[in-house]
Design a protein around this nucleic acid. Structure first.
Length: 401
RNA sequence: CGGCGUGUAGCGCAGCCUGGUAGCGCACUACUUUGGGGUAGUAGGGGUCGUCGGUUCAAAUCCGGUCACGCCGACCA
C-alpha cells in the first residue's frame, strides 16, 4: 500500500470519499450497475449497527420477522401515492423457470404492500393489536445515479412496520422510533443529528407524515440518515387491514413504518474521517485495536511474538475486538499507514523494549485531548503497563466516541 | 434519463493525434537485506488494450453501436 496519499477533503470532498471507500476496503462496485460489494471492513460496521439497533428495537417491544423479496406487481398499485412514488424505480421479474409469468413480480423497493397484506390476515379484533414487527432485508430501487453506501440500487436496511388501534398510538410509535434513531446516532455513531418533519413533497409515498433525522457532514451538507413514517390509515384501507374495535364497530388499523439503511455507513465515513483515511467510532468499529509486533532478528521475533500473543489472547478473552497483525513481509511503518487508512481506532505496538518493561505503546487513531499531548508533527503515543491495558482501551474508546 | 468526461496487468498511468511484435511505477512471487512511521537489492510471474461490429494487408490506435464508472442536472434512504 505504498500508494499515493488520498485526495484531500479540501481539494475534492467527493473524490476523497470515493477513494477512501475503496482503499479502506469498505466496498467496491459490482459488475452490475449501481450495485456494491460490501467487503469485510465495511460489512463489519454494518454488523455492529445491526447488533446495537436490533437490541434497541427489541427493548422497545419489537420482534423480527421476514417477508419475501418478490411482490406481485398488482400489490404495488393498491395505494395510489405509493405506486406513483415507486413505479419509476421498480425492477420487475417477468420470467421464471423458462416461461413468462402470468403476473410480473417486482423486487421489493420497500415492503409495505406485502407486510400489510399479511397483517390483514393476522388481525381480527383490537386484542390482536398492536403488531410491532421489524425486518432486516435488502431492497432494490433502480436509481439513476449511485454512490457507494450513500445511494445504491440494492441496499441493506431494516424496516419496522407496526399496526395500531388508534391514531394517537401510531403517532406516538412514529415519534418513539425517531427517538431511537436519534439516540443511536448520538451514542453509537457519535453523530449529532437534527430531527424534523419532511415537507409534503419529500414525504414517503403513501405516508401521512414523515419524520427524519438529518446528519451533518464535513462538507456542510445534511444527509438524511433515517426516516419514521406515520402512515395513517392509507395502507390499511388499501390492503383491507381491519379489526373490530372496543365499541364493536369495524375499523381500519393505523400503521407506521421506519427504516435506516447501509447509508448510515456512508454517513459515519463522511462524519469522522480525515485526509489520512477512515475514522470510526469505537462502538461501531469492526475491531477496536490491532497489535503490531516489532522486532529486528529471530531472537527478538520469538520473544516479542510470544509476549504479543499473550496480550492478544488476554484481550480476546476479555471480549475486546482486537486483531493481531503478524505479517512478516511488511515493515511496522507500512502497517501503521494501512491501519490508519482502514480506520482502526487504536493500534498497540509491541517491541523488545515493551517486553522488557511489561508495557505496550498505544497509539489512538485520533488525538485524545485528555492524554499527554503528542510531540509536534508526531502521532500521540501512550505508554501503558500491560496490567492496565484493558482499562486504557476502555477509557480511550469512551474518549473517542 | 439529458450534458460532459473516462475505460490499457490487482491499483495508478503512458502509448492513440501520425495504424506495424503492449510499456512504466506501485502491488504480487522467490531469495537476500531491513525492521519503534511507507527499508533496499537481485531475479521472476501476470494484460486477446471494457465489449460488439466496421474500415484496412495490418487496429490499443481510425469509425459506429453498446456496457460500466466519474462529474453536472432532474429523481431518491
Amino acid at each position: 500500500m505504498a500508494d499515493e496519499k488520498l485526495t484531500t477533503r479540501e481539494a475534492d470532498f467527493s473524490a476523497w470519499y470515493n477513494e477512501l471507500v475503496e482503499r479502506a476496503q469498505l466496498a467496491e462496485h459490482s459488475p452490475v450497475r449501481g450495485c456494491m460489494v460490501i467487503r469485510p471492513n465495511g460489512y463489519g460496521i454494518w454488523e455492529r449497527i445491526q447488533q446495537n439497533l436490533d437490541k434497541m428495537f427489541k427493548d422497545t417491544g419489537h420482534e423480527n420477522a421476514y417477508f419475501p423479496l418478490l411482490i406481485p406487481q398488482s400489490f404495488m398499485t393498491k395505494e395510489a401515492e405509493h405506486v406513483e412514488g415507486f413505479a419509476p424505480e421498480l425492477a420487475v421479474v417477468t420470467h421464471g423457470g423458462g416461461k413468462e409469468l402470468e403476473e410480473p413480480l417486482v423486487i421489493r423497493p420497500t415492503s409495505e404492500t406485502i407486510i400489510y397484506t399479511m397483517f390483514a390476515k393476522w388481525v381480527q379484533g383490537y386484542r390482536d393489536l398492536p403488531i410491532l414487527i421489524n425486518q432486516w432485508a435488502n431492497v432494490f430501487r433502480w436509481e439513476m445515479r449511485t454512490r457507494l453506501f450513500l445511494r445504491t440500487a440494492e441496499f441493506l436496511w431494516q424496516e419496522g412496520h407496526t399496526a395500531h388501534e388508534t391514531e394517537s398510538e401510531a403517532e406516538a410509535e412514529t415519534l418513539k422510533m425517531l427517538g431511537v434513531y436519534r439516540t443511536f446516532a448520538e451514542e453509537f455513531m457519535a453523530t449529532p443529528v437534527i430531527t424534523g418533519r419532511k415537507t409534503d413533497s419529500e414525504r414517503f409515498a403513501g405516508a401521512l407524515r414523515t419524520y427524519c433525522i438529518e446528519a451533518m457532514m464535513q462538507d456542510n451538507k445534511a444527509l438524511q440518515a433515517g426516516t419514521s413514517h406515520n402512515l395513517g390509515q392509507n395502507f390499511a384501507k388499501a390492503f383491507d387491514l381491519k379489526f373490530q374495535g372496543r365499541d364493536g364497530t369495524v375499523q381500519y388499523a393505523w400503521n407506521t413504518s421506519w427504516g435506516v439503511s447501509t447509508r448510515l455507513v456512508g454517513s459515519i465515513i463522511m462524519t469522522h474521517s480525515d485526509d489520512t483515511g477512515l475514522v470510526l467510532p469505537p462502538r461501531l468499529a469492526p475491531n477496536v485495536a490491532v497489535i503490531v509486533p516489532i522486532y529486528k532478528n529471530d531472537e527478538e521475533k520469538a520473544t516479542v511474538l510470544e509476549f504479543a500473543d499473550k496480550v492478544f489472547a488476554d484481550l480476546k478473552s476479555k471480549g475486546f475486538r482486537v486483531k493481531m497483525d503478524a505479517r512478516d513481509n511488511m515493515s511496522p511503518g507500512a502497517k501503521y499507514y494501512e491501519w490508519e487508512l482502514k480506520g482502526i481506532p487504536m493500534r498497540i505496538e509491541i517491541g523488545p523494549k515493551d517486553v522488557a518493561g511489561n508495557t505496550v505503546v498505544v497509539v489512538p487513531r485520533i488525538t485524545i485531548e485528555s492524554e499527554e499531548a503528542p510531540k509536534p508533527g508526531k502521532k500521540q503515543k501512550l505508554f501503558v503497563g500491560v496490567d492496565s491495558l484493558c482499562d486504557k482501551i476502555e477509557d480511550l474508546s469512551v474518549a473517542m466516541q
